[in-house]
Design a protein around this nucleic acid. Structure first.
Lengths: 226, 226
DNA sequence: CTCATCGTTAACCTTTCATTAACCTAGTCT
DNA sequence: AGACTAGGTTAATGAAAGGTTAACGATGAG
C-alpha cells in the first residue's frame, strides 16, 4: 500500500468514486463526508501525506479544517471546487492551498496534480534518507549511500526503487510495475524492467539481506531489512 | 518569525486565507478588515516592513491610509486590485505604491513580489555578503568577489545564483528554475538556462568545492562549501 | 545615430541512459 | 529426455539532454 490520503467530500457518489479511483492508483484513502467528523477523530489527521477537500463543504468547518491541517500537520492540501463558484473565493482559497482543481475533473488530471504536490513535498525535504541495511537511500536526491560513497541513481532506477520500498516484504506483480513506471496498459514485450532489476541487484550486492527474487510468471519478492 | 506585514482586506475569507498563506511562508501578519480600524490603532503601524492594501476598500479611507503610510512610516506597500479595475486609475492616484498585483493572483507571484519589494528595501542597506568558499557574493549589488577582484554579474546571473544559494546541497528541478526565473508555466524549449549554467560554472571554476552538476532529466545538484 | 550591454537563439558537439538485441540459465510441461 | 518459456546478463545503440561558443537583436544611454 502506498501514500495515505485524506479525502473530505460530502457527495456520497463522488466520494466513493474518488476513493476507489485513488485506491486503484495505489493510494490509501480515508474518506470523510464532513469536516467535523474528521476533526472529531483525533487519530485521523496523523500520518497522512495529502488532504483533498471539497470546498462546497459547510464553509466554516472547511476553513477550520484547512487551518488545522496547514498549521498543525503541515501536510499539503488540494481543493476541489465546483465550477460556478465565486472566482474571488476560489482564488482566495487557491492562495492557501497547494493546488486546486475544478469539478468535474479528469481522473488523470487529479492524479497528475497529486503527484506534483507530493513531488514538490519530497524535494522540499531533501535530506531525509531511508535506511536500507548497509545502504541509505535519499529519494529526493536519487542517491544511494554505501560506505561513504554516493551512488547517483538515474530517474527510472530511483522510481523503481521507491516503488519497491512501498512494498517491502511483498510480492509485486510484474504488470503493476510496468503499468506504474511505463504506463503500459497493454501487455508489454520489452526487457527493460529486467535490465533495471539487474542494475538494482548490482547496486545492493553488498548486503545479502536485500533481495529482489523473481517469482516466475508473477513478479518479484522484495526484501529489505527493517 | 520573520518580517512583519500589514494586511488590509475586507473580504473575510480572502483575508484569512492570505493571512494563513503568508504566515505559512514565515511572515508575521496583522490583518485589518477596514482602514479605519487600522488608523485608530496607533501602535499598529509601527514596526512593519510592508503593507498590502486592497484597493476595493472604501476609497477615501484607503487613500488616507496610503498617504499616512507613505508619509509617516515610510514602509513600502503593495496594492491588490481586482481584475476589472483600471490600472491607470490606480497609478493615477500617485500614491506611490511600490507594486501592485491583480486578483486573482498566483500565490507564488504574490510571494515573489513581496520578496522583490523587501529585497529592494534591503539593497538600500548594502554590503551584506555571503561567503562562498574562495568567493564572496553580494546579492544586493550583484557582485562576486574573488582574489580582490570584483566580478559584476548581470541581473539574471545574480538571480540564478541567489536561487541556488537557497537550495544548497539539494537538487533543484529544471522546471522550478524556469518557473521561478522565467515564469514559464508551459513547456519550455529554449536553452537560456544552460547558457547561464555555463557562465556560472566559469565564474566559480577556481573553487572545486563549488559545483552545479546536472542530473539528467531532473535538474542540477547544488554544492557550496559551508 | 552609435555603442555597449545582456538575455536569447543557433549551431555543433559530447554525454547520458532507456531500450534493444543477443545469448545464457533455469524452471515447467509433455 | 527434449521443447518451451521466463527471466538474467551483457554489450551495443540511438535519441534526447546537456555543454559550449559565437552570433543575434532588443534595449537604453550618451
Amino acid at each position: 500500500m502506498g501514500t495515505k490520503i485524506l479525502l473530505v467530500e460530502d457527495d456520497a457518489d463522488l466520494g466513493m468514486v474518488l476513493k476507489q479511483y485513488l485506491e486503484s492508483s495505489d493510494f490509501e484513502v480515508k474518506w470523510y463526508t464532513h469536516p467535523k467528523a474528521l476533526l472529531d477523530d483525533a487519530d485521523a489527521l496523523k500520518n497522512n501525506q495529502l488532504a483533498i477537500l471539497d470546498v462546497m463543504l459547510p464553509e466554516m468547518d472547511g476553513f477550520t479544517l484547512a487551518k488545522t491541517i496547514r498549521q498543525q500537520h503541515q501536510i499539503p492540501f488540494l481543493f476541489l471546487t465546483a465550477k460556478g463558484q465565486s472566482i474571488d473565493r476560489i482564488l482566495g482559497l487557491k492562495l492557501g492551498a497547494d493546488d486546486y482543481i475544478t469539478k468535474p475533473c479528469e481522473p488523470e488530471e487529479l492524479l497528475l496534480r497529486i503527484h506534483n504536490i507530493l513531488k514538490r513535498q519530497l524535494s522540499a525535504t531533501p535530506n531525509k534518507t531511508v535506511n536500507l541495511g548497509a545502504y541509505a537511500f535519499n529519494p529526493a536526491l536519487y542517491q544511494l549511500v554505501f560506505n561513504d560513497t554516493i551512488i547517483q541513481l538515474t530517474e527510472k532506477e530511483a522510481e523503481l526503487l521507491s516503488l519497491f520500498l512501498n512494498h517491502n516484504h511483498q510480492i509485486v506483480n510484474r504488470k503493476d510495475i510496468l503499468e506504474k513506471l511505463w504506463g503500459k496498459d497493454d501487455y508489454f514485450l520489452g526487457r527493460s524492467l529486467d535490465v533495471f532489476m539487474t542494475r538494482l541487484r548490482k547496486y545492493f550486492q553488498h548486503d545479502t539481506r536485500i533481495s529482489f527474487d523473481s517469482i516466475r510468471g508473477i513478479g518479484f519478492k522484495i526484501e529489505f531489512p527493517e
